[in-house]
Write a protein that binds this DNA or RNA. Structure first.
Lengths: 200, 200
DNA sequence: ATAATTAGAATGAACATTCGATCTAAACTG
DNA sequence: CAGTTTAGATCGAATGTTCATTCTAATTAT
């Protein structure tokens, strides 16, 4: 997740992520980060300009990681249906395998704490754009209902976010079957009835 | 929204909500609340035990308000399809008419800042439970796919949350048509193909 | 030896909360 | 009814703590 950083930076970023998710940004003090990461405050400030900068760097790193992971899924599979399945499965996987990163992005993607340019870069550098293109193509091919593709992607992302959130907070347990059903239900939600039988 | 509170409490709660949404909890100081609400810090502490208490009270009040609003929608309409439509339409309405309240709940429903008992009470006092029952009935009547109803409601809620979020942040503009389409697409997502023609 | 790195105490600002002083108005008294 | 008491409400300055950040000295690597 933090491959391109050095040992100290990695320790700081990992620790900060852990504390933010365990507690809150509010309760995430530099003293605590220093203590838990084993890096003194002096050193932290040698590598990062400010606390804000750490959080924004965290955001950048996770978006890049998640983006790459989901984009890779989108290239798998020959048919639209397979790409759709693989893409969203990767999104769910991220939430299950890297819950802290997932929750962090979830929590900060609209927060004023994240610099505007970082947020903007996330949109183009993440997996949003390729997924939008997949949907736009499907609409052009008259397979999906003619809605705004951005809107459709956003809606489906919301579906999986909430599925994962509830799983994370132990409202229910998410298993392989439920994930498959959730993806199928999203597919049904946007598939044009006329296209139901065709080769996709 | 804050009908059952007195003038001072209302001013404090409204102001706090406004600041939290405009800024962050982090940046929401008692001094600022006092200044903007026109109530001195001394008086604020006469009516509320602590800052935490204000935020939790805010949460309670908004959940109660939203719960009543959506539950009222769920009683409208004779058929399942009409109830489904009316219920989710109310959820969307809330997001459009009371964006601050909507964003607040969105942001704090899983936050450690909210006391566990308040969060729990929200679940039973809000609209979650009646909506779950609607879905459970539809599954029992073999109209909806046999998934965990809680999961289905959670998924659909996520759909609308993200639709509203993107609208709020001006990624696109949500109009009447799109809302209708979004609700229809959720309906299609869970409707059993066999049930498609029947009277619902 | 020089530059980079690390450490942790020191600094100063910001903050939640408390406190004692006023103010208001209702209740009580003669 | 005028005068007095009392309980609650309001205020903002004072308090003590916490926190991000800086600074200086010490350590390590080149």
């Amino acid at each position: 997740m933090f491959g391109r950083y050095n040992k100290v930076q990695r320790a700081v970023l990992e620790t900060t992520l852990g504390i933010i998710i365990r507690k809150e940004l509010q309760a995430t003090s530099m003293a605590l980060i220093a203590k838990e990461s084993g890096v003194s405050t002096g050193s932290i400030y040698h590598y990062f300009q400010s606390k804000e900068e750490i959080v924004n760097e965290l955001y950048r790193a996770i978006v890049a990681f998640n983006g790459e992971y989901v984009r890779e899924g989108l290239t798998q599979g020959a048919t639209l249906r397979e790409k759709f399945e693989a893409g969203w499965r990767r999104v769910v996987d991220l939430g299950l395998k890297y819950p802290a990163g997932f929750q962090f992005i979830e929590q900060y993607s609209f927060s004023p704490y994240i610099y505007d340019d970082v947020r903007l870069a996330a949109y183009t550098g993440g997996w949003c754009e390729p997924m939008n293109r997949l949907y736009a193509d499907a609409i052009a091919r008259k397979l999906f209902v003619p809605m705004n593709p951005k809107m459709m992607v956003q809606m489906h992302y919301g579906t999986f976010v909430y599925l994962l959130k509830a799983n994370l907070h132990e409202i229910y347990a998410l298993d392989e079957d439920s994930i498959g059903e959730a993806i199928r239900s999203c597919w049904n939600a946007v598939l044009l009835p006329e296209a139901a039988g065709a080769q996709l």
